[in-house]
């Protein structure tokens, strides 16, 4: 039981990270019907930028660990958001009216570009996050040992998701994003600047993906220039699991996948961890291609 609860908390923490990345896939897909294959690499960039800023600014020394990391996270989000918006301008907007495959190829190209840029700038070796800067204490809850870092991560991802949900549901811009995802032409007839909506999506998605990269660095302590590929694929699975194009679906899919994976690794085999995730993807694609909260296709007549 103790092992189960421990793995549950671990799964939720990792799942929160998957969910944050998945939101970027799902929002871009919702508005552009494009899988942004470079999204996983924006996540990697978030991790590396986080490491650089952590080492060079000494925020945790000046502000204490919690406030320092909060400021760091905000900076990473801002920077990766800008990179995301630039990506859209350079790689996707010129192809807006081209066949869909062109944009997909462009996305793959952008992914290769980012991955190699990170490798050239930081080297191909694993980089290590300094552990002495971060809180390493654990608390005991119902007999379960939970690292404080895990709680901070999970709380942060929940907070970001709640913030996004409120933004999309309650604000004018959020409503414009939802309208553009349903029918771009009709959204234009409402006076919505769809280009601006797409820009917002490419600011928000990469910001969340970037901060997820930072969180992985903080949680596991080491990062690599190829990490975006595996995490991107997992988060993509999570987005499909929840129903691609659906924002609450990405959140649910991410958390669920994190827990499934943690349980599979514990009770089946650690070596099969990734295989279990992708088995989930295959099963979803076979039995419920629209995902758990997938779009109600019947309404689209």
């Amino acid at each position: 039981m103790q092992l189960f609860l421990e793995q549950l908390t671990n799964g939720l923490a990792v799942g929160g990270i998957y969910a944050l990345i998945a939101l970027g896939y799902t929002m871009v897909y919702g508005v552009l019907k494009l899988i942004n294959f470079a999204h996983g690499d924006l996540f990697t960039i978030g991790a590396y930028l986080g490491l650089t800023l952590l080492l060079s600014l000494g925020l945790t020394d000046h502000l204490g660990p919690l406030a320092g990391i909060a400021v760091l996270a905000a900076m990473v989000m801002g920077l990766v958001a800008v990179i995301g918006a630039l990506l859209e301008r350079v790689a996707y907007r010129p192809l807006r009216t081209s066949p869909r495959l062109s944009a997909v190829v462009s996305a793959l190209g952008a992914s290769i570009f980012f991955q190699n840029a990170v490798m050239l700038l930081y080297g191909a070796r694993f980089r290590v996050f300094p552990h002495d800067l971060l809180p390493t204490t654990a608390i005991t809850l119902f007999g379960v040992n939970i690292p404080v870092m895990r709680i901070i991560l999970f709380a942060t991802s929940l907070l970001l998701m709640a913030g996004l949900y409120a933004f999309v549901q309650k604000t004018r811009t959020g409503m414009a994003i939802r309208a553009a995802a349903i029918d771009q032409g009709a959204a234009k007839l409402m006076g919505i600047d769809v280009n601006r909506v797409i820009m917002y999506v490419f600011l928000i998605g990469p910001a969340l993906g970037g901060v997820a990269g930072l969180m992985v660095g903080l949680y596991y302590g080491q990062i690599n220039f190829t990490m975006g590929w595996v995490y991107g694929l997992k988060a993509f699975t999570a987005a499909i699991l929840g129903g691609i194009g659906n924002i609450p679906g990405a959140m649910l899919g991410g958390l669920l996948l994190g827990v499934i994976e943690a349980m599979g690794a514990t009770y089946i085999s650690m070596a099969w961890k990734d295989a279990i995730s992708f088995l989930v993807l295959i099963l979803i694609l076979i039995f419920r291609p629209t995902g758990i909260l997938g779009e109600r296709v019947a309404d689209k007549v």
Binding site: M175, R178, A179, I182, D183, G185, A186, L189, E295, R296, D299, K300
Partner: peptide, 9 residues
């Protein structure tokens, strides 16, 4: 034409 209301809103 075809109304194009936002069906899921």
């Amino acid at each position: 034409e075809g109304r194009r209301v936002f069906t899921t809103l």
